[in-house]
Amino acid sequence: MENVVTHEDWKVCFAEAAPGLILFARQFVRSVADAEDIVQEAFVRFWRRQHPIENRALLFATVRSISLDMLRRDARRARREASAVAEADQSTAPQFDPTTESQQALSVAIDRLPAEQREVLVMKIWNELTFADIAEVVGISQNTAASRYRYALAALKKNLISHE
């Protein structure tokens, strides 16, 4: 029996995945608006190509690819306008909605992680991708993905303990 994905399924899928996708995109671009643009472009491209809705690794790989493209494209311009616009832009908007002090501390600690550990952590914790999926998205081995995840947790733990 054929599994038909309806228009409503895509909408629900996006509504569920959007927060995690934007969080993932923000590991590459600091601006919320840029991250939303990236996620929109990635999701619409994913939908137009009619990829299987369950293939989340491919969706994240698309987000990553578009983000890196944007970084490369904007690198020269960013050097020129690095000063004033960055101050006024909403790039420093928080990635999380912390409700307690400990969550606030955790959010700050996540920001301090190395980028390659942070992107693995984001895919694993808030998007529930497997290490196999993460390895496919990033282009690394599963062992490397698992190692980066463990290093990230260890660094977070160490950071939190030192601030207690």
């Binding site: 927060p19 990635q95 909605d97 959010s107 947790l153």
Partner: peptide
């Protein structure tokens, strides 16, 4: 720590 992280919710789009 993983449980604590999962309780931290990403910003709403």
């Amino acid at each position: 720590l993983e449980g604590e992280l999962k309780r931290l919710r990403p910003a709403v789009p």
